[in-house]
């Protein structure tokens, strides 16, 4: 296609958009609402992932031991490692624990404690997300010499199942939405295509190829999709920004662990931009092509 022809056909498509303002607004409205929901689902699942990853990292059982003789300690060690479903078992001696504390709080605290270390021996145990937490805890408690078991809540498991559900629901809702949007756009555009049926017929009569006739409609649909994407990007990103601002104020509440793991805007705006523009433009182009197809057979 020549540059001149390309420019001419693009202009045709764009002028049709401004001539049919009502249909343009309707289509952009429907498509941007759909894209907004897609963005919301995307933001939700991305953040849920980040929170779950965080919680999984916290999924650590710590057990503290009595002051045990070496034999007793070896026996307890055997029993602990025999329990099923543990990912990793790390022994932290009281000396190691003291060093850790010193590293965190400064060497000053070592003074006077070196000889009389008050910290107990402990184990740090990572369990997989699928392990029955309650059972594991009671087995650990039953071991002789174990004085305390600190287990996390079941939050990780709960979140993992929520993530699955959210994923399934979002995929089906988004698919349905895209289909509905395509039908709506195809129908709105069909009206203008029908009005241009005679025009298409004349074009074919003077020897226009189908691609030549389709091109302005594709530009029209693509532009429509692009504009809808811009609207959706603006709304979804500002909504997300507002949510981030709101949660930042609540840092004291018990939810702060969750809030602190929300992904900052700077890290994900580009995903939203790419997804919106891709889906918007593709949906726009496909639905216009579908509505022109019927009239090309003359």
């Amino acid at each position: 296609m020549r540059g001149g022809t390309f420019r001419y056909l693009s202009k045709q498509g764009l002028s049709s958009l401004s001539k049919n303002k009502l249909m343009t607004f309707a289509s952009i409205g429907v498509l941007s609402a759909c894209l907004f929901l897609i963005s919301a689902a995307l933001l939700l699942s991305v953040n849920l992932n980040s929170i779950i990853r965080y919680v999984e990292e916290q999924n650590e059982i710590v057990i503290f031991l009595d002051d045990l003789s070496e034999e007793k300690l070896a026996e307890a060690d055997n029993q602990i490692r025999a329990i099923e479903g543990l990912n990793s078992v790390t022994f932290v001696s009281k000396a190691d624990a003291l060093k850790e504390q010193a590293a965190e709080l400064g060497d000053a605290i070592l003074e006077g404690l070196q000889d009389d270390n008050p910290l107990p021996d402990s184990y740090r145990i990572k369990i997989s997300a699928y392990t029955d937490l309650a059972l594991t805890v009671s087995s650990l408690e039953a071991i002789e010499g174990v004085i305390q078991v600190n287990a996390p809540s079941n939050l990780a498991e709960t979140l993992a199942s929520i993530r699955q559900t959210v994923l399934i629901i979002s995929i089906s809702v988004v698919t349905a939405l895209i289909l509905v949007t395509m039908v709506v756009i195809a129908n709105t555009i069909k009206l203008t295509v029908f009005a241009r049926k005679l025009e298409i017929n004349i074009m074919k009569q003077v020897g226009a190829r189908n691609n030549f006739i389709r091109f302005p409609f594709m530009i029209e649909g693509g532009t429509l999709g692009f504009l809808a994407a811009v609207v959706s990007i603006i709304f979804s990103l500002s909504a997300y920004q507002a949510i981030l601002a709101l949660t930042a104020k609540e840092s004291a509440s018990w939810m702060s662990a969750v809030y602190n793991n929300l992904i900052p805007l700077a890290d994900l705006w580009w995903i939203i931009v790419i997804i919106n523009i891709t889906i918007g433009v593709i949906t726009g182009v496909i639905s216009t092509i579908a509505s022109v197809k019927k009239h090309l057979k003359v």
Binding site: K19, L198, E199, I202, M203, K204, Q205, V206, G207, R209
Partner: peptide, 20 residues
């Protein structure tokens, strides 16, 4: 078909002009 039609010059009884 388009290639063939380009070899023709057609005056239509009903003109068939594009209104826009």
């Amino acid at each position: 078909i388009p290639t063939y039609r380009r070899t023709l010059g057609v005056v239509f009884q009903d003109f068939r002009l594009i209104k826009s």
